[in-house]
Amino acid sequence: MKICLHTLYTINKNYIGGVERFMIKYAKEMKTLGHDVFIVCSSLNKEINIEGIKVLGIVPQQYIDKYKLYNSSSNFISKEILNNKYSVEKLRELSNYCLAQIADIEADIFHFNSFASNLYIPAKKKYFVTNHENEKEYDSKWGVGFFNFMSSLIKDKKTYLHNYDNLYVPSIYYSELFSKLFDLKISSIKLGIHLEDFQITRIGNKNFKEKIKLLFPSRFRMAQKGHIIALKACKILKDNDFDFEIIFTGVKEHYKNEVSSFLEKVNFYNLTTEVKIKNYIDIREAYEQCDIVISAERFCSYGLSISESLSYGIPTFLSAIPTYQEIALNYAHAYFFEPENPSSLAKAIIDYISNSDTKKINNEMIRFRINNDLRECAKKYNSIYNSSI
Score class of each variant (00 low, 15 high):
residue 22 F to R: 02
residue 160 Y to W: 13
residue 267 N to E: 12
residue 324 Y to V: 03
residue 135 E to D: 13
residue 297 E to A: 15
residue 199 Q to I: 03
residue 111 H to F: 12
residue 127 Y to V: 06
residue 350 I to D: 07
residue 379 K to Y: 10
residue 35 H to C: 03
residue 301 S to W: 00
residue 109 I to L: 03
residue 16 I to S: 12
residue 174 Y to L: 00
residue 139 D to E: 05
residue 69 L to G: 01
residue 68 K to M: 08
residue 249 T to K: 11
residue 310 L to R: 06
residue 194 H to K: 11
residue 203 I to T: 13
residue 143 G to K: 05
residue 229 I to G: 00
residue 203 I to Q: 09
residue 373 D to L: 02
residue 348 A to E: 10
residue 69 L to D: 10
residue 167 L to W: 02
residue 277 I to E: 06
residue 196 E to W: 05
residue 316 T to F: 07
residue 16 I to H: 09
residue 346 A to H: 08
residue 70 Y to I: 12
residue 330 N to E: 12
residue 42 S to H: 14
residue 264 E to W: 14
residue 126 K to H: 12
residue 102 I to V: 15
residue 213 K to G: 05
residue 42 S to E: 11
residue 196 E to Y: 08
residue 93 E to S: 04
residue 119 L to E: 06
residue 213 K to E: 13
residue 102 I to N: 08
residue 258 E to N: 13
residue 74 S to C: 02
residue 76 F to S: 04
residue 82 L to W: 08
residue 15 Y to D: 06
residue 333 H to C: 13
residue 245 E to I: 11
residue 159 T to Q: 02
residue 332 A to E: 12
residue 279 N to M: 10
residue 302 Y to K: 01
residue 208 F to T: 00
residue 328 A to Y: 04
residue 140 S to I: 06
residue 312 Y to H: 09
residue 214 L to D: 05
